[in-house]
């Protein structure tokens, strides 16, 4: 945790410097007749962020914050496994939206989580994994008139069947 805290503060300091630099693309001073420039607000806020990072680093060196005193790892083996399984699952879910549609990706993610991670019975996993996307389809496309991504054209026949029910 101790190493993690200073690394996090360092990453946030870099982010602050990047945002300060990015803010200078617009004026960061006071322009007579038109008030503070467009970059002033984010520039000075990022500068305050940088100051905060320095204060966090001082507290870390003085070992006053709880994480700076901790000898525990940020993520143990079990935690890393969880992050890879769940975070990775989410990454694949979002990555698949453009190919097999939001509903198809949702179906696969639900099945993966329920059956593989949750170790639920196959019939229950299938029931939820298929039922929820269908329910979402009618709620979003039918009731709310909000279209979610449909992926590549090979998914069209499936959606045409569902659209026929709505219209």
């Amino acid at each position: 945790m101790r190493l993690g805290e200073i690394v996090t503060a360092g990453v946030l300091a870099l982010l602050s410097i990047y945002m300060m630099w990015k803010s200078t693309e617009l004026d960061i001073g006071y322009i007579r007749g038109s008030g503070p420039g467009g970059g002033a607000w984010p520039f000075w806020l990022s500068a305050i962020m940088l100051l905060c990072c320095i204060m966090i680093a001082i507290n870390w060196a003085r070992r006053t914050s709880p994480p700076s005193q901790s000898t525990e790892p940020v993520l143990d083996a079990e935690g890393r496994k969880m992050l890879i399984q769940v975070g990775g699952g989410l990454l694949v879910f979002i990555g698949l939206v453009g190919f097999i549609s939001m509903y198809g990706a949702m179906m696969l993610f639900l099945f993966y989580y329920l059956w593989f991670l949750g170790r639920h019975k196959l019939w229950l996993s299938l029931l939820i994994a298929i039922g929820v996307p269908i329910l979402f389809f009618f709620f979003f496309e039918g009731l709310m008139r909000i279209t979610l991504p449909k992926g590549m054209s090979f998914t069209d026949p499936f959606f045409n069947v569902l659209y026929e029910i709505i219209y």
Binding site: M102, F109, L117, I128, F136, I146, L148
Partner: peptide, 19 residues
Amino acid sequence: PFTILAPLIFVLSIVGGYA
């Protein structure tokens, strides 16, 4: 059960973020 609620919350989050 949490292992049912958790994936549903993830799905709701992603769909909500898109909507």
